[in-house]
Amino acid sequence: MSVEVEIRFSLNGDELRATVPAHRSLLAMLREDFALTSPRLGCGEGECGACTVMIGGQARAACLVLAVEVDGAEVETAECLRRSDGSLAAVPAALVRAGAVQCGFCMPGIAVTATALLRQKRGPLERREIERALEGNLCRCTGYTKAIDAIEAASREEERS
């Protein structure tokens, strides 16, 4: 087994400590040690995007990040996209409204990728920009069209608010 390392990081706003084996992926730590279910193991090779989380506001494939790497960092998962009053944040709400969800396995990853995109780029987004941003998120059910519609709509809303 590997050496264990103590890390501190923030997870969806909570300051946490953990002791993890040096080889453990961030995805394994989030799912197994912190019982989060939104980052999903779709391939384990950074090809499908189902495990997308934000580290320091940037979308990352949690299966290709070691837990030790987030020492001192801010980690956010799709769980943080539900507000404390139970309502959904703009991006997931738009995904629901647009009918972008079928089996939904890929959806937390898409919601996180899109949230990171909207935080970085203010104002209405072009469809092409959204398609490009979703390139690393595979979906087998929906054909992406409605997810793109939703993110486009959310980018407009954001401008209004």
């Binding site: 799912r31 989060l36 279910t37 939104s38 980052p39 999903r40 193991l41 998962t77 799709a78 769980e79 996209l81 539900r82 959904l88 997931p92 995904l95 629901v96 409204r97 647009a98 009918g99 972008a100 969800v101 079928q102 089996c103 939904g104 396995f105 959806m107 937390p108 919601a111």
Partner: peptide, 21 residues
């Protein structure tokens, strides 16, 4: 009419429990 999938919110936010969970 156009009705969003009833359990969509759960699925999009990661509350839905799949086999992995």
């Amino acid at each position: 009419s156009s009705v969003p999938k009833l359990d969509a919110a759960k699925r999009v936010i990661g509350d839905a429990r799949y086999m992995d969970d």
